[in-house]
Design a protein around this nucleic acid. Structure first.
Lengths: 184, 184
DNA sequence: GTCTATATTATGATAGAC
DNA sequence: GTCTATCATAATATAGAC
């Protein structure tokens, strides 16, 4: 699938030949379905956006307690730990790649990050934090996750990721004990 | 200079034509000085490594107090804020780019990250933390900086970076007040 | 709709005159 | 050592038969 190749190799490093080989079709076929390679990425991102949106919506149903919901986000990172250490964060690395020389595509990747930021910000809102503080805390949570993944990926070290994610989890606990305090 | 182009455009997105135009020499000349484009990057990284190493050494001289030294690191991020928001972290984005498809070059980028990790770890050691905890805290500090820069770069928002770096600074203060506690 | 060419362009890298 | 070609390759994209 195209998503996997874009993730593991990066967008620019994935050629239409790679995509065609993986899909077992001649590469010329792509241009019947997509006007350009960029549109393949846009379609991949859009499909991903829909998928993540429904995942977050199901979390909102299954975990009405905002702290539990935020912990579910942490649990997702843990469940993806192998890929995250091997290839980095799909969203973070795409944002970083598109941030250089492809500002036109960058907003599409940003729409994925926004899903998570809005998800976390609304949880912090429910915990009683003002809207501005909630967004700041959401950005901090996402940033810490991104940083942990980046470092763990750089060293190819699972234990670094486990350590940092456990610490993030502890920060959520501390937050629980000190409501009203933007402590994450 | 090659370093600036590799930083702002990424390694792969910088062609020899770009390098030649910037240096105002024909691109064929590069192959008199370097066996390949990869070697240009290696030379850039090596020069950077030497430069950073001497900077960190001068900090060690100027700031014998480890907490002050760590704060100097934070101050460096603040002083680079415009570029960091516009192009991301040079080390972090290079690590991310090389982590996909260029595992052969990745160790060179990692040598830069290691400089900062060792710098921070030795400061935490001097603060009395055991060697393992000191390294964990160093990785956490670097990770939080990377995450803050990545998010701020994704949104192109200086205030996000300022916010997060101020919060990192606060974490260093809190650490100061609770020695022996791996709290960063 | 699906496939086999092929066009076009950009890249990293070389050859060889001076 | 420096320059002007030029090669070889790989990429995105198109044309056109079936």
């Amino acid at each position: 699938m195209a998503r996997r190749l874009f993730y593991t190799r990066g967008f620019d490093n994935t050629s239409l030949n790679d995509l065609a080989r993986e899909a077992a079709v001649p590469k010329g076929n792509f241009y019947y379905h997509f006007p350009s390679k960029d549109d393949v990425l846009r379609a991949v991102i859009e499909a991903r956006r829909v998928h993540i949106e429904s995942t977050l919506a199901s979390w909102a149903e299954d975990y009405p307690e905002p702290r539990t919901r935020l912990k579910r986000f942490i649990a997702m990172i843990v469940s993806e730990r192998d890929d995250l250490v091997s290839y980095g964060c799909p969203t973070g690395s795409l944002l970083t790649e598109l941030g250089k020389k492809r500002d036109d595509l960058q907003p599409y990747a940003l729409s994925i990050l926004n899903l998570y930021v809005d998800f976390a910000a609304s949880a912090f809102r429910e915990l009683g934090h003002p809207v501005d503080a909630a967004r700041t805390m959401a950005l901090r949570l996402l940033g810490r996750a991104q940083g942990a993944i980046l470092i763990a990926h750089a060293y190819g070290d699972l234990t670094i990721l486990d350590n940092e994610i456990a610490n993030l989890d502890l920060s959520l606990d501390a937050l629980e004990r000190a409501p009203g305090h933007p402590a994450i």
